[in-house]
């Protein structure tokens, strides 16, 4: 089909020519059948760049039906792959990275000046010549949101069963082992050995799982801003599930759980820092549970204590503070219960907060997702397609 003359890199225009009848094979190879591991050693989001370079060529030859057909086939194939892998974090992350990269490419090379400010002059030469794909950008943006929601769903389903035992029940501070409120001393140890009982996870297991999610998203070249939003959403879930359990379980409302919880939340903040995720607003989502931990630990006796609690616990509603104080269980016979008059003191303080009416947090609350425009520094004409992808029917132009 093609005279195989080795051309110098500079001769390439960053386009890929294909025959219309090869479109189905192209989409099958690059979308339907691809495994993330096939392209793991190459440029992140390679499928997105290859597809865009094919779109560029169809635009260059002024073939509107070829552009429309490839984009539609790609979008439908991505949707199918996601449906088939709707419990697979790796595949979902891979397609979120590639779909959002394809969307960024359609913007970066649209010819719209707003998207060209960071382009090199070579990249500007590579802008689409004939077609305005703004409507397809909208479809890809909608698709990216759908994929993001699937990613959150898969990740939440994985961590959900770990949260309570990792955050509230496992003993990550060795010196606190065995320090439990009266009557509950052996609860979690007996639970671990119960046949058929719930599985027990440590905080380290939960952090390890978060680390795996993070590593996968990084490997796929997902934009750091999107990765940050995923982490923030998962931290919200961890916070809400933990707080809701505190609000319902007497056995965890104790000084030692407060200590444990403070330690656990600090470990999670540490994980954010170690992974450059502290700016993602994820840490702020832990505020209610951090304050609940402090509430379990502070003195709860005098009017001054009540005042201090109210100015400390700004992320908790009065209803939540009162509930935790009511459930608070002394560690031993020397520690006193919280008195009724102290709780009344808290309840009767002038309300300066706008409290939500419900006691429990919405574990399913989702923050609106944003895909900020992230142009790429890659020069399309330098892109190398590995032979292992079996795309030799594409012709570099």
């Amino acid at each position: 089909r093609q005279v195989t003359v080795q051309r110098k890199e500079k001769d390439f225009e960053g386009m890929l020519e294909y025959h219309k009848e090869d479109e189905a094979l192209l989409v099958k190879t690059l979308v339907t059948d691809i495994r993330p591991s096939t392209v793991s050693a190459t440029v992140p989001c390679l499928p997105a760049y290859i597809l865009f370079m094919c779109i560029r060529h169809a635009d260059y030859i002024n073939d509107d039906s070829k552009v429309e057909s490839l984009l539609t086939a790609t979008i439908n194939a991505v949707k199918k792959v996601l449906k088939k892998n709707n419990e697979d974090f790796e595949m979902t992350s891979f397609w979120l990275a590639n779909t959002s990269r394809l969307l960024h490419c359609l913007k970066q090379y649209s010819g719209d000046e707003a998207f060209m400010t960071q382009n090199t002059s070579k990249q500007n030469e590579h802008c689409l010549k004939n077609f305005d794909l703004a409507e397809y950008r909208q479809v890809l943006s909608d698709l990216s949101i759908q994929i993001y929601q699937q990613l959150i769903k898969v990740a939440e389903a994985t961590i959900q069963p770990m949260i309570v035992s990792a955050m509230l029940e496992s003993e990550s501070i060795p010196s606190l082992a065995g320090v439990k409120p009266m009557g509950y001393r052996h609860r979690s140890s007996s639970m671990d050995t119960d046949a058929g009982g719930p599985a027990s996870y440590t905080l380290q297991a939960l952090i390890r799982q978060l680390g795996q999610f993070h590593a996968v998203m990084q490997e796929h070249g997902l934009d750091p801003e999107i990765t940050g939003q995923v982490v923030r959403q998962l931290f919200h879930c961890i916070n809400a599930v933990t707080l809701n359990n505190l609000l319902l379980r007497k056995d965890v409302c104790s000084w030692s759980t407060g200590m444990q919880l403070r330690y656990n939340t600090s470990q999670m903040e540490e994980w954010l820092r170690a992974n450059n995720l502290y700016q993602s607003k994820a840490a702020a989502t832990l505020e209610p549970v951090i304050q609940a931990a402090q509430l379990l630990q502070v003195k709860k006796k005098t009017t001054q204590d009540a005042e201090a609690i109210c100015s400390l616990c700004t992320a908790l509603s009065t209803q939540q503070i009162v509930k935790i104080l009511n459930l608070y269980t002394p560690l031993n016979e020397f520690e006193e219960r919280v008195t009724v008059s102290f709780i009344r003191n808290i309840q009767n303080r002038p309300q300066q907060r706008s409290d939500p009416p419900q006691l429990l947090m919405d574990t399913k609350h989702t923050f609106p997702v944003l895909f900020p425009y992230t142009p790429s520094a890659l020069s399309l004409e330098t892109l190398h397609i590995p032979a292992s992808l079996c795309l030799d029917f594409l012709n570099r132009v």
Binding site: E68, T72, N76, E125, F131, E135, Q138, V139
Partner: peptide
């Protein structure tokens, strides 16, 4: 800088419309 000549807007169906078209195509071809 490339000459800025107007590009032709390609109309795209919405994501939901694309899915509908895709489903009916699949139904047609057994």
């Amino acid at each position: 800088r490339p000459p800025s000549r107007p590009r032709i807007l390609l109309k795209a169906p919405t994501l939901a419309e694309m899915e509908e078209m895709n489903i009916s195509e699949e139904e047609e071809s057994p």
